[in-house]
Measured scan of single mutants.
Amino acid sequence: MQRVNMIMAESPGLITICLLGYLLSAECTVFLDHENANKILNRPKRYNSGKLEEFVQGNLERECMEEKCSFEEAREVFENTERTTEFWKQYVDGDQCESNPCLNGGSCKDDINSYECWCPFGFEGKNCELDVTCNIKNGRCEQFCKNSADNKVVCSCTEGYRLAENQKSCEPAVPFPCGRVSVSQTSKLTRAETVFPDVDYVNSTEAETILDNITQSTQSFNDFTRVVGGEDAKPGQFPWQVVLNGKVDAFCGGSIVNEKWIVTAAHCVETGVKITVVAGEHNIEETEHTEQKRNVIRIIPHHNYNAAINKYNHDIALLELDEPLVLNSYVTPICIADKEYTNIFLKFGSGYVSGWGRVFHKGRSALVLQYLRVPLVDRATCLRSTKFTIYNNMFCAGFHEGGRDSCQGDSGGPHVTEVEGTSFLTGIISWGEECAMKGKYGIYTKVSRYVNWIKEKTKLT
């Protein structure tokens, strides 16, 4: 034993070699072989497995989906700052455009905790909710729209109204504003409101030439003092309507412009014939205590009207009353817009006519005020429907199939267009061939041609 100890002390290297040989010859039971080890760690190889990531292109799944990435790591994937920024906006807080917040056709661009709407022409605001041009839906104005110097929408209202708090709607500024039905039992019968379409306001006024200088022999019209197929109006439903009495009662109609003036057809009036105007009328054979009678003290036909040349060209006249009318729910003026808007309103496509005229061709006159909704007829169809001249200051309205029309005794009465609950004068009943005849239409004086003249002559002093 002493000898062994001496050998170990003198030859430590020998001992180490012996131990190493023993270990190498022993069977290893701690580690699995290569094949079995792979069965336990069965993990798919990654895209760049075996390579240094710093030297390969980034992978979106590896960089940002398996674990949260930084902007720089995302930049490695896209290799483009702009594309990385677009991805980053949604990656950080989701897609803010998912709810489609942009209105009126706006395009949404996502941002971090926010979004941006790219608005089409005519709109602005956070969600493109603000109209900035009158060309689109009248700028959301209830009545009139004008573009300011910086191309912003400025709404306005006709006389007797003021802008509401929203700067879009119009509200009454006087007790009985024009064009409004205020009798409670008839307010439910107000005709369907007309909503502004998209309009090209630059070209809204037709490029028409008034044929002022045409000389033409007097034409022989049949029954051209021209509501057939209409309905009984309720008291106060058309408070701007008046009836004219002269040699015979209810020979023509008219509309209240203001307390002192009536507008009617020029062919209705004769110099030297006494005319009485009755406002607030409903049943011409009954006294309903809503009527107001006034005498006409002055007749002003349009300066281009000449019955000797043509009885229905420039067929418009103004009547001055001896005493002002007292405005109330049964006696209310009709609204008159400017030339541009009167023309736009007419193009809405349908209007209402009213009167006490004959209820059928050569038949009896109506006792109760009649009204009828009539569609506008395109000019080409209008011209083809008659052998008589249709001037540019006239328009056609009615039904091709016949059966409904204005008729004798309705002449001078109103053709009105309702705009968001307020009625505007767009025409004056003038003439036609018979009444409600198939293929024939009622012919009306186009008020847009005469609004400046009306307003100039009827100013209240």
Score class of each variant (00 low, 15 high):
residue 441 Y to H: 05
residue 285 E to W: 11
residue 214 I to M: 08
residue 446 K to L: 03
residue 231 E to C: 10
residue 68 K to Q: 15
residue 231 E to F: 07
residue 160 G to A: 02
residue 395 F to K: 01
residue 415 H to D: 01
residue 322 D to M: 03
residue 189 L to C: 06
residue 116 E to Q: 05
residue 383 L to T: 15
residue 82 E to P: 10
residue 31 F to G: 15
residue 175 P to K: 13
residue 224 F to W: 13
residue 39 K to I: 08
residue 77 V to K: 11
residue 423 S to H: 15
residue 397 A to W: 02
residue 287 T to A: 15
residue 461 T to R: 08
residue 284 I to D: 06
residue 300 I to E: 05
residue 318 L to W: 00
residue 142 E to W: 04
residue 241 Q to P: 02
residue 456 E to Y: 09
residue 259 E to I: 05
residue 439 G to D: 06
residue 444 Y to K: 01
residue 11 S to I: 14
residue 264 T to Q: 00
residue 235 P to V: 07
residue 350 S to V: 11
residue 110 D to W: 08
residue 402 G to I: 13
residue 241 Q to A: 15
residue 341 Y to V: 05
residue 171 E to Y: 09
residue 256 I to G: 01
residue 77 V to H: 13
residue 80 N to D: 13
residue 253 G to Q: 08
residue 188 K to E: 08
residue 356 W to C: 03
residue 105 G to M: 04
residue 127 N to V: 05
residue 170 C to R: 01
residue 107 S to L: 06
residue 163 L to K: 04
residue 195 V to L: 13
residue 340 E to S: 07
residue 313 N to I: 10
residue 425 L to G: 00
residue 98 E to K: 12
residue 428 I to F: 05
residue 301 P to Y: 10
residue 370 Q to R: 14
residue 60 L to R: 08
residue 279 A to W: 00
residue 220 S to I: 14
residue 54 E to T: 07
residue 226 R to H: 14
residue 178 C to V: 01
residue 13 G to N: 10
residue 317 A to L: 02
residue 261 W to Q: 00
residue 161 Y to M: 04
residue 283 N to K: 06
residue 56 V to H: 14
residue 196 F to P: 09
residue 273 V to I: 09
residue 316 I to F: 01
residue 451 V to W: 02
residue 344 I to T: 09
residue 320 E to H: 02
residue 280 G to V: 02
residue 314 H to D: 05
residue 181 V to F: 05
residue 420 E to G: 14
residue 226 R to K: 09
residue 194 T to Y: 13
residue 349 G to P: 04
residue 185 Q to E: 14
residue 287 T to I: 12
residue 234 K to M: 06
residue 80 N to F: 04
residue 62 R to G: 09
residue 270 E to V: 12
residue 417 T to E: 00
residue 261 W to D: 00
residue 430 S to T: 12
residue 432 G to C: 10
residue 224 F to M: 13
residue 337 A to E: 01
residue 452 N to P: 12
residue 282 H to S: 10
residue 163 L to G: 02
residue 380 A to T: 12
residue 260 K to M: 06
residue 378 D to M: 04
residue 46 R to V: 12
residue 182 S to Y: 09
residue 412 G to L: 11
residue 84 T to M: 04
residue 369 L to C: 03
residue 400 H to Q: 15
residue 299 I to N: 04
residue 362 K to G: 11
residue 118 W to K: 01
residue 167 Q to E: 07
residue 161 Y to L: 02
residue 241 Q to V: 10
residue 245 N to L: 07
residue 404 R to S: 15
residue 302 H to Y: 14
residue 243 V to Y: 15
